[in-house]
Design a protein around this nucleic acid. Structure first.
Lengths: 342, 342
DNA sequence: CTGTTAGCGCGTTCAC
DNA sequence: GTGAACGCGCTAACAG
């Protein structure tokens, strides 16, 4: 119980050196002699000194923090990516600040307050943030993650969404499906468009029909998946397979289909997107397009470190996706595949 | 392109006042005259001035940030709580920093660096953090969330875990189950213990058997749920109902049971804990003990604001839980209940 | 109501 | 290799 915290001056007095030497000993140990270094470290230990980040940041014109702007913190898709980011940032001496761009109270003004004194970098996951906001002079380096803006010249990291759609179509086509529908994400979203476009292209390439009534609207929510199931049930001609733009909609769709007494994959095969953890452990286990989420986070953090250091080498990183085959897909009209590995 | 960002002095010159007046106009507008306020705001707009938080924080001896220490950022249980916290903190002018206490690289030293110059407050979700670490003098106000430490004198917010277990037992008992097992959380965890103890007490109170082989080990992961299913299948006498200490284990358990050709709830009824979003949309929809996660987050944030302000009125807040009945529970040996609302 | 003054605690010049 | 002095940008205190 010393009362107030020791400052650098206290350490200096205790070690019998000047504050400048203490500062150097702590940040650039190679610049001080071995003896003084030891004396300083001892004094630090004895006094329980810890640096004051506010003062250091003010002096160094940095903040020590990277802000991740996510559209919805409650979405489990992001949590693993954030964990990946934090795992790289921590050792680099930076902390991760998370901001929910669509939280009640956190309005669109949020981004305007994110000047260089607030964050050393900004990783934007929200495709709804207007590009012009992202070019304000006062902003720190900006990295787009899991989204991109054509022609904006902003660095980005993402997966190959079109390839993911193509994988889904190839898988379903390979099982014998010719009537394949798509459950879309929210409108005006680049992810939604890339996946839908990739789907259209892949269908056309295989000579499969592209019917607009088989492209159903959704918004990435569980509820919109259930709604799509009703829509699908009401269709005069139903596709025998459905590629969903994310896993949550796929789960909602399957749940509602099953509640109505039909079965998956016997009555309809379903492919999701993202491969969030839980979908491997629902019934039927969901076939899904896997995004390497931890890797996305780690790579995004490394790109941000490079941006801050001024080494803007890789402007656009596109990571591969892969199809994880599970039990929600089968040949049309066929029941579950024989019991396989989990 | 002004080159460098305007400082408060630039605004002052532009408005023809002193820097102190600019500062007051921005933080305590009621203290300046209407005319000067307008002049300052105009100058702010014209110059594109934004405050430098590092300088403000240094002067005010605060950081503007609250750190949430979560054991695993990738766990979807926390994301909704974090969203609740952020929604209260934002309007209060504070930002939320998220730290993953078990991230690779983020070792236990993490908490030692969390002095007052790093964070204005600390919300700890990780029951594995040793209490003595939490009493270091340099630490900002600490709030325990979704955990507690008996006798440590630290404020906390949590749900009534024992009551949750009692609700589960009452529900299953009411359906006619007399052989009820429990899938435990990780050892040495207060949540695990409270739920298991609540379970034991509730069983005893109803005169139901408490058999140790029906209390199976787990660790809150999906995989441990699957493992428990194998253990359950191998039992000579199997409980006809299982209360799981969280939803993920319940999902893993159900998936594995179904993969082995048995059915839920016909062959075994399952109750989860947490009521994470997805469990309402799996098959069968999971009966679960719901925690008010958004409310936990919001209340935690408000408690933290009070702690920072020195108004330590409510030391321990216990929020109620409720049982959400869905399709994973039924009378022993009975199939699904008739189709009900989603 | 407004201006002047004096730091917040640190990192970095420049001398020595 | 080390110390003295300065200032990062802002706001709390005190005058006026």
């Amino acid at each position: 119980m010393t009362g107030s915290h020791p400052r650098i001056r206290d350490v200096a007095e205790l070690a019998g050196v000047s504050t400048a030497t203490v500062s150097r000993a702590l940040s650039k140990p190679e610049l001080v002699s071995k003896e003084t270094l030891e004396a300083v470290l001892l004094a630090v230990r004895d006094s329980g000194y810890v640096v004051n980040h506010a003062a250091r940041n003010l002096r160094q014109q940095r903040t020590g923090g990277i802000v991740a702007l996510v559209p919805n913190l409650a979405n489990p898709f992001f949590s693993r990516i954030l964990a990946g980011i934090a795992s790289v940032l921590g050792p680099a001496g930076l902390s991760l600040l998370v901001a929910d761009s669509q939280a009640p109270g956190g309005d669109a003004r949020l981004i305007r307050s994110l000047n260089r004194s607030r964050a050393d970098g900004l990783i934007v996951f929200d495709g709804a943030v207007p590009p012009e906001e992202l070019r304000a002079a006062a902003l720190p380096p900006v990295l787009l993650a899991c989204e991109w803006i054509d022609g904006a010249g902003l660095p980005s990291i993402r997966v190959d969404n079109r390839a993911g759609a193509a994988l889904a179509v190839a898988h379903l086509g390979g099982l014998g499906h010719t009537a394949i529908g798509h459950l879309c994400g929210p409108g005006g979203n680049v992810l939604t468009e890339a996946r839908a476009e990739g789907m259209r292209a892949a269908l056309a390439e295989r000579g499969l029909p592209v019917r607009e009534e088989w492209f159903m609207p959704g918004d990435f929510s569980l509820g919109s998946g259930r709604a799509a199931a009703e829509r699908w049930l009401a269709l005069a001609e139903r596709p025998t397979a459905l590629f969903c733009s994310n896993d949550e909609m796929a789960c909602g769709f399957i749940a509602e289909v099953q509640r109505r007494g039909l079965r998956v994959p016997r009555d309809v095969s379903v492919v999701g997107f993202d491969d969030i953890e839980l979908v491997a452990h629902v019934t039927p286990a969901l076939t899904s397009i896997a995004q390497p989420r931890t890797e996305i986070g780690e790579k995004a953090a490394r790109m941000m470190l490079a941006l801050i250091a001024g080494e803007a080498d890789e402007a656009d990183v596109v990571l591969p996706v892969e199809l994880v085959r599970r039990d929600s897909t089968a040949a049309p009209g066929r029941g579950a595949r024989p019991l396989a590995s989990a």
